[in-house]
């Protein structure tokens, strides 16, 4: 039985036994290479489910939809390891109760997917620990390395050119599981902290604010980067910040549901070179 069929069976079981009220997964999209999010509420609807290497999007953001988990019933969700790390962060930041999240875990490459054993986020801690362990030797993005070699002036010019395309549609924010604020700082207008205008300064402000808000929280799922309608390479910024946080604080986002947020916690042995 293919992994897709195995998981269809599992979804039907979860829904007919009442273990979950809904399963969030993937279905076929407009073109052969596209997958769309799917919300399955009856065992019959499981037939629409697709699970293959094109299932890339991190769906965990849907779990913090207002009211979805407030009845204390469980929801099933298809997640790759990066999505499971998102669940840990959302739990650690008190945005959801991980007991209500039944994970249908999978992993894979651009050709095939494999099933991951486990049901609750904590069941996958060994996999996540191994990803962290191998993070330093993981192949680095060649474009990121190129940007690191630039002088500060060149780097600023590079990002200004990239951000000049930004139209402030906020697709990056809306696609990001970590951007769950009911009212984003840029939507606060009394006072107007951040310019809403999509001009050079406004675009720079927005993207820099977002980079800092995601430092130590981004799991590198790439949702923002894929969502950007003008193809700004947003994942490079977040990958850079994740690397900095790992190096400075040995913090790898989403290790457990009780992990303290790196920018909101203090340890005696934290590096303080930037203060002293």
């Amino acid at each position: 039985m293919s992994i897709q069929e195995q998981y269809k069976k599992r979804v039907r079981e979860l829904l007919s036994s009442g273990a979950v009220k809904m399963v969030i997964g993937y279905q076929a999209g407009t073109t052969a290479d596209r997958r769309r999010p799917l919300f399955i509420r009856t065992p019959e609807e499981a037939e629409k489910l697709v699970l293959d290497s094109a299932c890339i999007a991190n769906l965990s953001g849907y779990l913090v939809t207002e009211g979805l988990l407030s009845d204390e019933k469980s929801v099933g969700i298809f997640l790759r390891p990066d999505g499971i790390r998102s669940i840990n962060i959302l739990a650690a930041e008190a945005q959801l109760n991980p007991e209500q999240v039944v994970i249908l875990g999978f992993d894979g490459n651009d050709k095939e997917v494999t099933a991951l054993q486990g049901e609750k986020a904590r069941d996958f801690s060994a996999i996540i620990a191994s990803i962290k362990e191998h993070a330093p030797e993981a192949p680095r993005n060649p474009q990121l390395e190129q940007i690191e070699k630039m002088s500060p002036k060149e780097r600023f010019a590079f990002w200004q050119a990239e951000f000049s395309r930004c139209i402030k549609c906020y697709a990056c924010r809306q696609a990001c599981p970590m951007c769950y604020c009911r009212r984003c700082i840029v939507d606060s207008n009394q006072p107007q902290w951040v310019n809403t205008s999509s001009h050079t300064l406004g675009n720079l402000e927005w993207n820099v604010v977002r980079a800092f808000h995601l430092s130590g929280r981004c799991v590198g799922c790439g949702n923002c980067d894929r969502a950007c309608p003008v193809n700004i390479p947003l994942r490079l910024i977040n990958a850079k910040m994740a690397g900095e946080v790992l190096g400075a604080f040995d913090h790898f986002a989403g290790m457990s549901e009780t992990q303290e947020p790196v920018l909101a916690s203090f340890k005696k042995d934290d590096s303080e070179t930037f203060i002293l």
Partner: peptide
């Protein structure tokens, strides 16, 4: 599944 961004409108 709409995530409420402004991509389509912009």
């Amino acid at each position: 599944r709409c995530i409420g961004c402004g991509s389509c409108t912009f």
